[in-house]
Design a protein around this nucleic acid. Structure first.
Lengths: 248, 248
DNA sequence: ATTGAAATGTGTAAAAATTACACAAATTTG
DNA sequence: CAAATTTGTGTAATTTTTACACATTTCAAT
């Protein structure tokens, strides 16, 4: 293996370089940073989002996303996890970073950056164990003004989600382990806010060939029960697409 | 217009609330934050990226992205602009935020967040006016190790770009105002790193119907000259797609 | 002027994907 | 047992994608 001269350093030389780097970093301006969690929830019927009343008096009455500052040496992903855990009691939720919002006027107390994290989950699989600040699932259809720039963040994440769910099988985490095609279609219709043709929808998913027929049927519906399927995550992971094609 | 009671506040009450918010923000931990610019350049033949030698002694010999800390009250978009301007002399380059990187170990001097910004431009349209730290266009094919986590950032942005260019007509900014279809196809082939069928490529773009035939021909090529086209940005803006279809 | 090299411009047939659309059968509820 | 609801299924028409070859134009070299 080739080794550059400059990597052959004594421990004390290394220590000096790290000290230099540390000194440099210490000279940087520092900024308060928060994470905001945009947790979309699906209850089988409607798309909702987790909101609380803002802590800030100046936003009294406004709804707010779940957020908190990032700790002094805390990774952002962890901070987002922590926010969700401490605000809702939920644990182990999969969060994805969406975007950083940095408009200087976004916080009345001065400049605060925020990094938005997003998730999508089944409301019935995740109980809210803490209800401080009127934590609740808010319908995505009836959003008024919100605290800070949270409406903007939420709208951005909503679009992000709609795109994301068309390219990744996020949706299957919303369903029970075994689900009917009606449940699946319903999910897409609600999240994308469109109507889909039932026969073509089925054809599409059967053609993808990621559904496993369990041979079982629904048993809790007030009409003819549908066949139950599982999603073949393993096969999906193996066959993921890369190139999609120029299209705009 | 409906006005909530709590918005009817005297100026002094408002001032108090802002003071409260400011006090809260002052209590947040603060983090050094940088922006890193990932500037992809196309010279008609090859995809390159702007790199410099790292300022840090500990990374002596390694290549680095163009970065700097964000000023005390500077918006990140502006910081990215400034970095590019002061490091290269380029002005008015369109930058897009891609992602924030927050791994605590990513900087040897301690925790520093960085927000990656990305652009794609024609190398020949943008002169490098400052060449400090060996600023240069580096071939995307021959990247070794880099300073910090810059290799990871660059790879992430490269994938981001490949996806982005399939869904948005970024590419046309790389070409002269009037371009031949060979130039266009070449661009896609280089950036996506694939071969495309010439006839089908043409068909695709003609079908999109965003190309304006100028009636003119190339006059500087050592072979049969091709017809020159312009991109109809106006029409594109009007006809942008929204729904693409479930596909994974 | 001729020749060779290089790239342009063009069409079609086959395959695959998308769309629109209707009716009989199964089940629960009242 | 009747009404309501939802399942499950197929086909024809259209559109989109793919694979593929040859004559023509121009430049450069001789």
């Amino acid at each position: 293996m080739k080794r550059e001269a400059e990597t052959n350093l004594s421990t004390s030389q290394q220590a000096k370089l790290i000290k230099d780097a540390t000194k440099l970093v210490a000279s940087y301006p520092k900024v308060p940073i928060t994470v905001d969690c945009v947790i979309f929830g699906f209850d089988g019927t409607e798309l909702k989002v987790l909101l609380i009343r803002s802590d800030l008096e100046i936003f009294k009455g406004s709804w707010s996303l779940l957020g908190d500052f990032a700790g002094d040496n805390e990774e952002l992903d962890e901070a987002a996890d922590r926010v969700l855990r401490t605000r809702t009691g939920m644990d182990g939720v999969y969060l994805e970073q969406v975007r950083t919002f940095s408009k200087p006027s976004r916080h009345p107390g001065g400049r605060v950056l925020t990094v938005a994290y997003c998730s999508l989950l089944n409301i019935e699989h995740h109980q809210l164990k803490i209800l401080d600040n009127e934590l609740h699932w808010h319908s995505i259809q009836s959003l008024g003004d919100m605290a800070f720039d949270h409406k903007e963040i939420l709208d951005y994440c909503h679009k992000w989600l709609q795109k994301r769910i068309q390219e990744h099988p996020l949706g299957f985490n919303l369903l029970p382990d075994k689900f009917s095609l009606r449940e699946l279609q319903n999910l897409y219709e609600v999240i994308l806010d469109i109507k889909l043709d039932r026969r073509n929808f089925r054809k599409k998913f059967f053609a993808m060939d990621f559904l496993i027929d369990t041979g079982e049927y629904e048993d809790d519906v007030p009409h003819r029960p549908g066949r139950l399927y599982k999603f073949n995550f393993q096969k999906y992971e193996k066959n993921k697409k890369s190139w999609v094609g120029i299209d705009f």
